[in-house]
Amino acid sequence: MLRARAGLLADIRSFFRQAGVLEVETPVCSRFGVTDPSIESFTTRYTGPGAARGETLYLHTSPEFPMKRLLAAGSGPIYQICKVFRGGELGTRHNPEFTLLEWYRPGFDHLGLMDEVASLVNALLPSTLPVERVSYGEVFQRYLGIDPHVASAESLRQCAIGTGISGAETLSLDSADAWLDLLLTQRIEPHLGRERLSFLFDYPASQAALAKVRPGAPSVAERFELYLEGIEIANGFHELTDAQEQQCRFEQENVIREERGLPTVPMDRNLLSGLASGMPECAGVALGIDRLLMRVMDVASIEEVLAFPYLRA
């Protein structure tokens, strides 16, 4: 396993060297955190010169914000391989600290970046797999016969009960998106990435996260995810570059945090000023190295690809 991991990392670095993408490092600890209500940051404290009374620092959950500041400063295409940290996540596919590969391509949109993700992943897997691209709307129609862009929370709930998700009757979920997450994880993901790379793209605008929203009927978020053997491997965006829109989303997310009784998180003002100074149009993606290694080694649990998983860390 150690050799497979080292080999994978070496192959990724060689892929990007050939592609002319620059490797960068950005801080793990920041005064600012991620406001996304579904992501929980670890915090730590620094006390000493520069912060005599001490201050709270957030461990990054992805290196996205500082990498975007580099893009805004004119770095050109960049990538990073780093450990990231997320609270509350432990299971066969989750470890609270895990290794992320994140990269950004100025001038690409989410469709163009999907092609590059496919060629990287196919270069890393033992054999080349066919690539399937299917929109979020199509996949819900195909497996559940429902339109995820217009369906109400109640009709999604009925769909979950109708399709036999045990416990759906008594679940209290606070949004249509949460029901979509339930249906996606329980009834659709298992079909995705079987002997192929499956890209799911054009997400509901309500799940845009940091992606551009393309107006239309319906409006969709220019976001994609890659699945291998039913497991989510990567998440990419045609990146939002509008500082004002970004600030609105941060603020809304903190409002949702308050409603749910979660701690609010200071939004990254450095990112906002970076965006305001002019970030190039680009696409970016984060890919879970541990999960990719699970596929390369054909193992079912993330513990099997970590030298020391959480419970033995």
Binding site: D36, S38, I39, G88, E89, L90, G91, T92, R93, H94, L173, D177, A178, D181, L182, L184, T185, Q186, Q207, A209, E225, E232, N235, A286
Partner: peptide, 12 residues
Amino acid sequence: NEFVKPGKGQAF
């Protein structure tokens, strides 16, 4: 017990 969570979304 299986922990299920989309990268950006509701955990189950």
